[in-house]
Design a protein around this nucleic acid. Sequence first.
DNA 1: GTTCCGGCAGAACGATCGTTCGACACCCGC
DNA 2: GCGGGTGTCGAACGATCGTTCTGCCGGAAC
Lengths: 208, 208
Amino acid sequence: MAHQPAHDEKLDALLAAAARVFAKRGYHETSMRDLARESGVSLSGLYYYVKSKDELLFLIQDRSFAAVLAGMHEALEGVENPLERLARFIDNHLDYFASHMAEMKVLSHEALALSGDFLVRVNAKKQEYTRTLMDILAEVERVQGPAHINRRIATYTLFGTMNWIYNWYDPLGDLSVEVLSQSMCRLFLGGYVGLPVSDAVLPHLTAG
Amino acid sequence: MAHQPAHDEKLDALLAAAARVFAKRGYHETSMRDLARESGVSLSGLYYYVKSKDELLFLIQDRSFAAVLAGMHEALEGVENPLERLARFIDNHLDYFASHMAEMKVLSHEALALSGDFLVRVNAKKQEYTRTLMDILAEVERVQGPAHINRRIATYTLFGTMNWIYNWYDPLGDLSVEVLSQSMCRLFLGGYVGLPVSDAVLPHLTAG
DNA sequence: GTTCCGGCAGAACGATCGTTCGACACCCGC
DNA sequence: GCGGGTGTCGAACGATCGTTCTGCCGGAAC
């Protein structure tokens, strides 16, 4: 029951177009007729590729999260230094975010819009992702000494820092992702481990 | 054309109920019938107090933002030390957020849902608020020396840190607002000015 | 040439949406 | 008693929603 390559390509294009519209107008404000108009297919034609509007949102969120998780695993593979692991986690997150603003905005902003089994499956990925960051912070503390900040607060503070960017960041502006990533990494680490983080301490991210 | 006190009280209760439902289900998913059921008024009865669903959202956002701004001005009044001004800004924000979770979630999450004149008026308040924080950061740099972090990144990082809490924080849980506020203040300051922020450096917030 | 199926569109379905309308009860000044 | 504002309601409006039904088109299989 495998699909043709052409089928998957068109589905990908459909999801990308839908993510763009969802990001701009929001999930519930966007009608299937809007998506049809934007993607060049007829209204009923959409239902050949997707079973429902819910499933469309789920596919966007699930695939984006899977990509972020895959990038994370690759970025962390073989890296032992907790500080570098943290830096790579942040860098992977922001890098994917900046190059997939629409999908990530939908993922961050429309987390509530799913329900039932779809919500459970996305939340499973989210928990794995959150757990990974908390584990990294535990490793950082093991090396740098106990932080004077609650680890749960620190975790969600960092996620807030990174996920909020869909409200203000323009990937085409004069702020590069590298600057953004290094800034947020130093901003967080400086406050978390209680020591100033200079360029010498912080592993540079472009290597690897 | 002034309203009776009873009128305003009922409108306040209506807005509070609406904010609760908007926060839980989202603005566009919530129907006027939902709001009628939740607030104990009939569907058409809502329109005696409010001209449209848009206006209802606007009133929630505008009043909440006005309250935050008023609290901010009061908290900063007469305070000269930039570090303490920053601490008070953060404390006021989180304090109001934690005690008005529904309204602030609507304010943070439904910023895109307004349009036209309503959007312009809310954005005016938002700009004043953002500008104030950026000015405080400029004062901090003047005292502590230039930061090695872009000020715009720092500003929105801090807002992300604070506004993201509607995704995870439970005001009735075991994390108090005081701990949250101090943690985020230290977390941010430690990374921003590049120096560890001990209890001695950071002004305590309980003093009025 | 016929069959078959993936790909897609037009038209329509029932449901629900935000909003409006007309009417009724209440309470006050007169 | 009576007119007029205040507060509230049930019923209905047209519009739009997500989804489905039916069928046409084109090319590969035989």
